[in-house]
C-alpha cells in the first residue's frame, strides 16, 4: 500500500500545481488583456505611435469628438470642434476644452476609445493629453491637444471599409478619490467597452 500512498501524494502534488498555475493565469490575464487590446486595437483601443507613416491618401474620413466626465469630476469638458474631416495618413491636431468649476485644485485622467470598435487598429495617437494626468486650479480653463492620424489601410480592410465616420471619445475621471487610501494611477490607460457609459 505504501507505493499507492506515494503515487497518490505525487498525483495530488501535480494537480495542486495545476490549480496554482490556473490562479496565476487568472492574474496574468490582467496585463495580458491590456496588452492584447493595445496590440490588436480590440474594443476600440486606439494605437499609440511616435509618428505618422509616409503614405498620405487623398481619401478622407470624418472624425467626431465626444467628451464625458465622471459624476465625481467637477469639470466642464467639451471638444473644441464637434467634428473634422481628415485625409487618411495625415497627422491632425484637435483640441478639447476643460474648465475646473470647483473651488479646489483637481487632478484628473481621461480614458478613451474609438467607435465603431473595429476601427481601433487604424486609429493612431501620436500625442494626447490623456497620456498623462491633468491638473486644473479652481476656475482654470485650458485647451488640451490630441494629435492623431487614421491609417489609410482602413479602406483596404474589408471589415472596416464601410466606415465613413469615427467617434473619438474621452471620459475624465478624478485621480484622487475622496477616500485617501485609494492610490491614484499616474498613467492613463485605454479603456475598453462600457467605461464611457458611466460618464
Amino acid at each position: 500500500m505504501a507505493s499507492t500512498r506515494t503515487k497518490n501524494r505525487r498525483a495530488a502534488m501535480a494537480l495542486s500545481v495545476v490549480v496554482a498555475a490556473m490562479v496565476g493565469l487568472a492574474f496574468a490575464s490582467v496585463p495580458l488583456y491590456k496588452l492584447f487590446c493595445q496590440v490588436t486595437g480590440y474594443g476600440g483601443t486606439p494605437k499609440i505611435k511616435v509618428a505618422a507613416g509616409d503614405s498620405v491618401s487623398t481619401r478622407q474620413i470624418e472624425v467626431r469628438f465626444d467628451a464625458n466626465v465622471n459624476r465625481d469630476m467637477p469639470w466642464r469638458f467639451k471638444p473644441a470642434q464637434v467634428h473634422m474631416t481628415v485625409k487618411l495618413g495625415e497627422p491632425k491636431l484637435a483640441f478639447y476644452r476643460a474648465r475646473n468649476d470647483s473651488d479646489e485644485t483637481v487632478t484628473g485622467t481621461a480614458v478613451f476609445n474609438v467607435t465603431p470598435y473595429k476601427v481601433g487598429p487604424y486609429f493612431s495617437k501620436i500625442d494626447c493629453f490623456c497620456f498623462t494626468e491633468q491638473t486644473l486650479k479652481p476656475g482654470q480653463e485650458v485647451d488640451m491637444p490630441v494629435e492623431f492620424f487614421v491609417d489609410p489601410e482602413i479602406f483596404t480592410d474589408p471589415n472596416t471599409k464601410d466606415v465613413h465616420a469615427i467617434t473619438l471619445s474621452y471620459t475624465f475621471y478624478r485621480s484622487e478619490p475622496e477616500d485617501s487610501d485609494k492610490k491614484a494611477e499616474t498613467a492613463a490607460r485605454p479603456a475598453d467597452g462600457d467605461s464611457k457609459i458611466k460618464g
Binding site: A26, S29, V30, Y33, K34, G43, N70, D72, T109, V111, T171, Y173, R174, P177, D181, K182, K183, A184, E185, A187, A188, R189, A191, D192, G193, D194, S195, K198
Partner: peptide, 20 residues
C-alpha cells in the same frame, strides 16, 4: 484595498471581470 482591476476611473476594465 484600493486596487482598480475593474474600475475604469483608475485604468481598470469591468469587461475583464466578465471574461474571467
Amino acid at each position: 484595498f484600493g486596487t482598480a482591476f475593474f474600475n475604469p476611473a483608475e485604468g481598470g476594465d469591468p469587461v475583464l471581470w466578465q471574461h474571467l
